[in-house]
Design a protein around this nucleic acid. Structure first.
Length: 581
RNA sequence: GCGCCUGUAGCUCAACCGGAUAGAGCAACGGCCUUCUAAGCCGUAGGUUGCAGGUUCGAUUCCUGCCAGGCGUGCCA
């Protein structure tokens, strides 16, 4: 409907341009919006305000001219100029019910856009597989998944990806941690390194290693520790690196046994964890594959050929300052090892080579400093950095009993995503994570999320859905519901509440578009809360199952449309739409 | 120091790429259940949108400066 109205105005602007009254430069797109105040009619546009100055008349004068030249439309029954120059339009009552009809016709597809042909990749979570996901990863997971759903509903071809950091130093530390725990469990006396992974899951993995390999992997402790520097707050990095080196050289090919065990088990755990959270990926991309296929060498060679690299103090540097970075970045250390950033560069090249129109990265807010260098790398590789979008997700702060829950990875006292899910449930968890703008801190109130009370916004929406389901259950003793009869009698619907609902239903699609285009899923949360509120208000004052069959079915048709949109919206959020509560 | 983000009701947050009287929820107060779930609804109260300028018909929104808070600023990953 909006599009129809807008095109009427566009046609007038076209005429003006043809007659030379309006220049290309001064022309603005026509924006039609649903009014907030019923006194302003049903729809309004500010075209007159936008073009008045360029055309040398007052907005109200231009409005008058627009109205007289506007082609008549059978559904527009009122048109007037108001305020500083808004044009308010009033539609025939049955036209306002159009969203109901469309919603019923399209069902679960209602709200989805036509295929855009745009290919988008969303990479998110991508947590190091060195331990279970914690609550910080949870927000990125919920945000990325919901965003992907929205982009898909928007009509884009969406692929999702988890980048597995299975090649870096952190993974070596993980493998070493498991191996040291393994030695410990076999009775060797040693001090577990400060720089190792402390969590109890490491001991579990060591126990599994004993189960499968007995003591076959054990080596004399003195051989392993001979060259180690002492462990301490200042030397823990050197200490654990020493361990890694001695374990690798002593174990030789057997090193991959504890390493692969740890990687496989933890990655499986992460995958299960996310699946239970309704978060799945099209691809799991291995960083190690970039190493093995020579992709890193190739990418670095490409940068070198382009003159973007130089040597300094033995290291190889990328001149990212040429693209606005604060300082140049090392891609290869003086010891010959590539940095993590080198993998990132190869990964960027790999992604672009797969033909996506847009690459979206979802990162934790602590990665803020990496945006510039990654975009710089994309530019230096010859790609358009604007096709690469990076969204930062701020951390969630948990509150329990009004107190902030302290979390520390080091002490192992962090809250895992799994624990959070089990405490508050997937539905509340998914909803709470995305209900706020991603780049803002999120106060996650555990008490509120777990409370089965009216204060809990996710229940408010689900309750509206369940209520509608209950009404339909009440039909059992009555003549069956006839959808066609309902659609034919929509004109019997009365009251401002009904108009509000119909208007809201009509905004579902544009809400999805807006949320997808701005990468802000929280808009959908607010929309669903508003729609649920519209419904509760109507329901409270209107009995649906009345004796008059025509009236009854008209009301049930409206209820059905609301239920459909609530279900469609909740599905996009990864939240269930319960039939009973 | 530099860079980015954020300042809106007592609290947590909205405000449709500049629009009409800045909106919800919670907290406070007062009402509504013999009728489809009261996990609901209605009403009252609550604001100089951090401060000061600028741009314009119009600014919470855009620009500048200041104030306050957060994050980032490793040959770490």
């Amino acid at each position: 409907m909006k599009e129809q109205i807008a095109s009427l105005f566009e046609a007038v602007l076209d005429q003006w341009m043809a007659k030379g009254q309006l220049t290309e430069q001064a022309r603005r797109p026509v924006h039609v919006e649903a009014t907030r105040d019923p006194a302003h009619g049903d729809f309004a546009t500010n075209v007159a305000l936008l073009h008045a100055k360029a055309m040398g008349v007052t907005p109200r004068q231009l409005g008058e001219q627009l109205i007289t030249e506007l082609a008549p439309h059978p559904l527009i029954v009122g048109i007037e100029i108001a305020g500083p120059g808004f044009i308010n339009l009033r539609l025939r009552a049955d036209a306002l019910f159009e969203p109901i009809t469309t919603c019923i016709a399209e069902g679960s597809r209602y709200g989805r856009g036509a295929t855009t042909g745009r290919k988008v990749q969303v990479e998110y979570v991508s947590a190091n597989p060195t331990g279970p996901l914690h609550v910080g990863h949870g927000r990125g997971a919920a945000y990325g998944a919901t965003l992907s759903n929205l982009l898909s509903a928007r009509g884009h071809a969406v692929e999702t990806e988890y980048y597995v950091n299975d090649a870096g130093r952190q993974m070596s530390i993980l493998g070493a941690s498991v191996y040291i725990r393994y030695l410990e469990a076999l009775g060797h006396s040693l001090q577990f390194p400060l720089g190792g992974y402390q969590g109890s899951y490491i001991q579990d993995l060591a126990a599994e290693l004993i189960h499968t390999h007995s003591d076959a992997l054990a080596r004399p402790i003195d051989d392993l520790t001979r060259t180690l520097v002492s462990d301490g707050e200042d030397t823990k990095d050197a200490h654990i690196d020493g361990w890694i080196q001695s374990i690798k050289s002593t174990l030789g090919a057997d090193w991959h046994i504890p390493f692969d065990l740890a990687l496989t088990r933890i990655l499986d755990d992460i995958r299960d964890d996310l699946t239970e959270f309704s978060v799945t990926f099209s691809h799991w991309f291995s960083e190690a594959s970039l190493v093995n296929t020579g992709a890193i060498d190739a990418a670095i060679a490409q940068l070198d050929a382009g003159g973007h690299l130089y040597r300094n103090e033995g290291a190889l540097w990328f001149r990212s300052t040429a693209y606005g970075d604060d300082k140049d970045r090392v891609v290869q250390r003086d010891n010959g090892e590539y940095t993590y950033f080198a993998s990132d560069i190869a990964y960027i090249a790999n992604k672009f080579s797969r033909g996506y129109d847009e690459l979206i990265y979802v990162w934790g807010a602590d990665h803020h400093g990496y945006i510039t260098r990654v975009k710089a790398a994309a530019s230096a590789l010859g790609y358009d950095p604007d096709r690469l979008t990076i969204r930062l997700v701020q951390f969630a702060i948990l509150y329990r009993g009004g107190e902030r829950v302290q979390m520390s990875t080091r002490s192992g006292s962090f809250v895992t995503l799994r624990e959070l899910r089990e405490e508050v449930g997937v539905d509340a968890c998914r909803y709470f994570y995305v209900m706020r703008k991603a780049d803002q801190h999120l106060d996650f109130d555990l008490d509120l999320a777990t409370s089965q009370s009216k204060d809990n916004p996710v229940y408010y929406i689900q309750y509206a859905h369940a209520r509608i389901c209950r009404v339909f259950e009440g039909l059992q003793d009555q003549p069956p519901f006839d959808l066609q009869r309902g659609l034919a009698n929509l004109a019997l619907l009365e009251g401002q509440e009904v108009l509000d609902i119909a208007q809201r239903l009509g905004q579902f699609k544009e809400t999805i578009e807006r949320a997808a285009d701005s990468l802000e899923p929280h808009l959908l949360c607010y929309y669903l809360q508003d729609l649920a509120g519209d419904f509760h208000r109507w329901y409270n004052g209107t009995r649906l199952l009345v004796d008059d069959i025509s009236q009854r079915d008209a009301r049930l048709t409206l209820a059905q449309a609301v239920r459909q949109v609530l279900a469609n919206g909740l599905t996009l959020l990864g939240v269930s739409a319960p039939e009973a509560m």
